[in-house]
């Protein structure tokens, strides 16, 4: 996407307003809504990583939640063994997810299209099955509970703890902004352009001399690492990690977020994540049939709004 100068200025202003608007949430919102917004931000990071795959590399994964879950479990296992510190815990989430992504990527990326979808779905469910059945490590369906949030080194002097009102939300906001910036950079780099070329026309890219499978593999592992970071945040936020995090519907909901928001924009998935999370957590407090409504919204979007929310704005 190439924007004119005026359009990029407007886009930057929009991003700035959005970030500042989100940052004020702890000042006025009730506790429950801060909680929902925190979950939405974590899901937004996850959805952005999926957008790197789906929007830029053209790889629709139905097993992305596996990396989210692996990140959460890795963080949880370490935190429960008295490892403290924000960076080590986020890092272990990313690294664990990336390591798991290596064999899965190597096997699934030999295929494309419908096969890729089916394979990622199958591998994702395999890891979910592991999380359920490997009771000695994961405690099965009960999950790992009582995960402490890390203390912030250097901020002790000000006595800021991540359990304070809004503190964890702000942390997630910062991670989301950094993730957005880094992924944006990646998308605009020669690597990102190469991925777009592969998405558009893999055969031609091979004929030009690009080892296309390696590029897709790199994108796959990178996206998994980012999903792992989101998973680690989720474990810290909830205080527990359960197999539900890896379930295929989580991957499906992330696809919903990306498509409803607008793929290949990075900001679209963020908006989409808020829509999904507000439907899931917000609506469900008032309505029993939130899945029905979400499913219907979703069907309508697929049929009538191919560009997602971002596409609507761009056309307006």
């Amino acid at each position: 996407m190439t924007l004119g100068r005026a359009a990029s200025a407007r886009y930057a202003a929009f991003l700035g307003t959005l970030a500042i608007g989100l940052a004020t949430i702890p000042l006025w919102a009730p506790r429950f809504w801060i909680y929902i917004a925190t979950q939405a931000l974590i899901f937004a990071i996850f959805a952005m990583s999926l957008d790197l795959l789906l929007g830029y590399a053209g790889l629709p994964s139905l097993g992305h939640a596996a990396f989210f879950g692996v990140g959460a479990y890795a963080c949880a296992l370490l935190a429960l063994r008295q490892v403290d510190g924000l960076f080590p815990l986020l890092l272990v989430g990313a690294v664990a997810a990336a390591i798991v992504a290596v064999p899965i990527g190597a096997l699934s990326l030999r295929t494309t299209g419908i096969y890729f979808l089916m394979l990622t779905l199958a591998f994702g469910q395999m890891l979910w099955g592991l999380a359920v059945n490997w009771v000695s490590l994961t405690r099965g369906t009960d999950g790992l509970i009582g995960i402490p949030r890390p203390t912030l080194v250097g901020l002790d002097a000000f006595e800021i703890s991540l359990y304070e009102r809004g503190a964890f939300f702000i942390l997630c906001l910062i991670v989301a902004i950094v993730t957005f910036a880094l992924l944006q950079m990646l998308a605009r780099s020669p690597f990102g352009k190469t991925l777009e070329g592969i998405r558009e026309n893999e055969r031609r890219m091979r004929a030009l001399g690009f080892p296309t499978v390696r590029y897709r593999f790199a994108a796959f592992v990178t996206a998994a690492a980012v999903a792992g970071i989101a998973g680690a945040l989720a474990a810290m936020s909830n205080g527990y990690a359960t197999p539900d995090l890896l379930y295929w519907t989580v991957s499906g909901l992330a696809l919903v977020a990306v498509v409803v928001g607008g793929a290949r924009s990075l900001i679209g998935p963020v908006l989409g994540a808020f829509v999904v999370l507000f439907a899931q957590l917000g609506l469900s407090t008032y309505l029993e049939r939130w899945e029905l409504i979400l499913g219907a919204i979703f069907i309508a979007f697929v049929l009538f709004v191919p560009g997602g929310l971002v596409g609507l704005v761009r056309r307006a």
Partner: peptide
């Protein structure tokens, strides 16, 4: 222009740069 740029990058093997600029 972006089409042509991809071909030039293919020859330069500069597709593995992860930052813009």
């Amino acid at each position: 222009a972006d089409n042509i740029a991809l071909a030039v990058r293919a020859r330069n093997r500069s597709g593995w740069r992860f930052w813009p600029g």
